[in-house]
């Protein structure tokens, strides 16, 4: 594999990881929004299938992000300024979203 292609795939992998994490939480929030507030009785009765589906769909979205980024030019990639702050903000958002809307 050429060095440029490897770099593109590397950035695409990072995009996969970020998008898969965000897509999972976004799906969960959509589920809660389109249904009822979290009901412990339903949580107990629910099979794990919903979790697997959310994971599978998140992988699909991650795959889409991977494909989009992998098609780009590696020269155009670089860490944005304040990337660490963006990652930190994402972490806090994921944490609070899953805490408030489990």
């Amino acid at each position: 594999m050429s060095e440029g292609r490897r770099a593109r795939f590397g950035w695409a992998s990072l995009a996969f990881g970020l998008v898969a994490a965000i897509a999972y939480v976004a799906q969960r929030l959509l589920e809660i929004r389109s249904a009822t507030p979290v009901d412990p009785l339903l949580v107990i009765r629910e099979a794990h299938t919903a979790y697997y589906w959310r994971c599978a769909t998140a992988i699909w979205w991650g795959g889409v992000a991977f494909a989009v980024v992998a098609r780009g030019s590696a020269d155009g990639f670089g860490l944005p300024r304040f990337a660490a702050w963006w990652f930190g903000a994402l972490g806090i958002t994921l944490l609070l979203s899953t805490w408030w809307w489990p």
């Binding site: 992998s13 996969f16 990881g17």
Partner: peptide, 11 residues
């Protein structure tokens, strides 16, 4: 997963 793949693929 994203981090591992990126670390291994980086030239």
């Amino acid at each position: 997963v994203g981090g591992v793949a990126a670390a291994f693929l980086a030239g």
